[in-house]
Design a protein around this nucleic acid. Structure first.
Lengths: 243, 243
DNA sequence: AAGTGGTCTAGACCACTCC
DNA sequence: GAGTGGTCTAGACCACTTA
């Protein structure tokens, strides 16, 4: 139910005294319509008594189901079965090199351009740059077995990524440099579709007019915006995940 | 760092005696390169002593960071900072009606077709249907304020969704019917871009050749495949999430 | 005002895995 | 075999929210 099993200890039928067992039992009652959507379920203390375990165990199970969107929990108001379950899918966003390597293909990389420039207004806003400030603009192409895989078009705020101006981005992609030097950031992600113009078509080796998947991403180190990147994938690329 | 704040109690700087405080402190040390990627960090008991809290509190914090992909934890082997951090983004997949309502727009719905038929081979395989078996094929259009929002093209295995053949899919969308009657399922999800042909362009009110975001989804109730759906969104639609 | 979930503690045992 | 994380317990206090 949850995106990934919370633990590796994913055995078959857990007794009801483990938190996985409690979760399974609660899920069973929901699926069996003992507790239809919208129903208020017993509070943690009562459930713990009924199932013969500690309240902390029940709490762990219910918290997990709430994170999965199955339950709706609120203090004082209690816990109810979600009326319209919101599914949560966990997307894995690997480093481009790793994604290609995971397919058993060779990763290639070519820096197309690198320049300090004033970004377009939208990008400047996304990076929270002051008026007229410059940023590092990098365009690069990643290959899988010599086939174009994804075009990386990235703006980096130099102050937020010290050292990036000295990095040899012809050898190591900005993607990887940032992962190594400004790791564990937070940010936003959005997906859309774009039509390949002549330039994109040439770079990604497809016909002009082809529909391509594009991922836009902004990254913050927790305090400052570090980078805004647009990744345009080759034709036919699909992003996969499981619910 | 984690997809969503695990609790609503997202205050500023938590003292180090809460699990959020421990998480913040660990994250700070990682970002400050006190613990570079690949480093083994102290075990839970030591960290708890150092930070002056219970081991369970440290466990909660480290487990959260491990779920976020920041840490790599293994029994006996200990906890280390992930060498190549795999970002995990949590995607919210709401019911279409709710997604439109959340934008403050009116949801409209029109059933285009409904028929029992033998699905194409790929779909039959996705639904694990026996040779020549029939499935319910539903095509419908969702509107936001009378503008086409998304085309739903869905195959449903009737045996796995008892009652669906009697459902009035002209009034309630298959999307919603399934959520209500076969909830809390698991499945796969994949995204891609497609070019609008004349038919799609007409339905989604865009020019032929426009690039559209398409989401393919299969759903299982845990034992059997229930449905395979393709959702093709209107031009300009973006799927957003945060890391 | 009161009841519910959210969290912390201190201790214990277990399961897994690396040495 | 030993050390690490994974989990459970019993009790306690707190924070929030709603009646």
């Amino acid at each position: 139910m949850s995106g990934a099993p919370p633990t590796q200890t994913a055995q078959g039928t857990k007794g009801p005294r483990t938190w996985q067992g409690v979760r399974a039992e609660v899920l069973r009652r929901i699926r069996a319509r003992d507790w239809p959507p919208g129903t208020m379920i017993p509070n943690e203390a009562d459930l713990a008594r009924e199932l013969g375990c500690a309240r902390a165990t029940v709490n762990r199970a219910l918290r997990d189901l709430a994170e999965a969107g199955v339950l709706d929990r609120r203090r004082r108001a209690g816990t109810r079965v979600a009326a319209t379950p919101v599914r949560r899918a966990v997307l894995q966003i690997p480093v481009i090199r790793d994604e290609i390597a995971a397919q058993g293909r060779d990763h290639g990389y070519r820096l197309l351009s690198r320049a300090l420039a004033a970004p377009p207004a939208a990008t400047a806003a996304a990076l929270a740059l002051p008026e007229g400030a410059q940023a590092l603009h990098v365009r690069a192409l990643h290959f899988a077995d010599a086939q174009p895989f994804v075009l990386e078009d990235r703006w980096i705020a130099p102050e937020a990524a010290p050292g990036v101006l000295d990095a040899d981005l012809a050898r190591i992609s900005a993607n990887e440099w940032l992962v190594r030097h400004a790791p564990f950031a937070s940010g936003t992600l959005s997906f859309g579709a774009v039509t390949a113009d002549a330039g994109l078509a040439g770079l990604l080796d497809c016909a002009p007019g082809t529909a391509l998947l594009r991922l836009d991403r902004t990254t913050s180190d927790g305090a400052r915006m570090v980078t805004a990147a647009a990744l345009t994938y080759h034709a036919g690329y699909r992003l996969r995940t499981t619910i």
